[in-house]
Design a protein around this nucleic acid. Sequence first.
DNA 1: ATCAAGACTGACAACCATTGTCAAAACCTC
DNA 2: GAGGTTTTGACAATGGTTGTCAGTCTTGAT
Lengths: 134, 134
Amino acid sequence: MTVQPAREHRRTRQRAAVDEVLDETADFISAQELHALLRARGAGVGLATVYRTLQTLADDGRVDVLRSDAGEAVYRRCAREEHHHHLVCRSCGATVEIAGPTVERWAKSVADQHGYADVSHTLEIFGTCPRCAA
Amino acid sequence: MTVQPAREHRRTRQRAAVDEVLDETADFISAQELHALLRARGAGVGLATVYRTLQTLADDGRVDVLRSDAGEAVYRRCAREEHHHHLVCRSCGATVEIAGPTVERWAKSVADQHGYADVSHTLEIFGTCPRCAA
DNA sequence: ATCAAGACTGACAACCATTGTCAAAACCTC
DNA sequence: GAGGTTTTGACAATGGTTGTCAGTCTTGAT
């Protein structure tokens, strides 16, 4: 078997459209919002397709997913590939990516202490950004 | 005992029932599960009431809420009142409460660095507990 | 006890994000 | 192009959660 870099999915107009929106959008966006945006923009894409595309991207680690307070899943294309966290503005959604080796180690050690294996964790920080606080 | 600091809600059979289940349950439980459990136990309580009761408890900070991977809200009565986190078994749900002053400070400082005010954060650790790993 | 006021309840409908379905369309390889 | 596979999209179905509203229960006062 030849080395398969990562061409597992086909390039289609719909996926390109979703990708484009993700590139232009700095903040987390929900599948519904993305769908509405595409429709408004003329390049309509089926809702189911939007969901499938986002899910695929998330599975491949190409976008980050987290849950809004309402429990809705929101997506965002992130700059760094490695594991990281987010500092999100509660008011406008402005997001800063955070790398926290300290926390990673801490989480690991806490889990070890209690004998938990296969550890993963979620960590998001919320606050009011400088612009919204003004 | 005459001093009633915060009797904002009435005591009813239904709320007592929900409370009881929460006391007996060490792991996070969903509203649906709680409702089924009550029904099976004979002390039926309306589903809407279960939801309302849990929401009220959560608002009052009497139970912790977090979202399962499926996006379902799950509830748990916690031992400590102060802010803390959880180490949850991915398989059986066994939960350990964790206090992490280090993380609290870290989160605060990260937020400060970026000028974010009014900071809060969510942090949960998932893993496989010793018993499930066996 | 009794009562009135209003908080609480529950069966059911309504919501809404998300997923399943499946025939038609798009795509790639030969 | 032809054939086989992947993708799409309109629509139905699912499932957790919230809204509704008339009837019931608590509570504090009488």
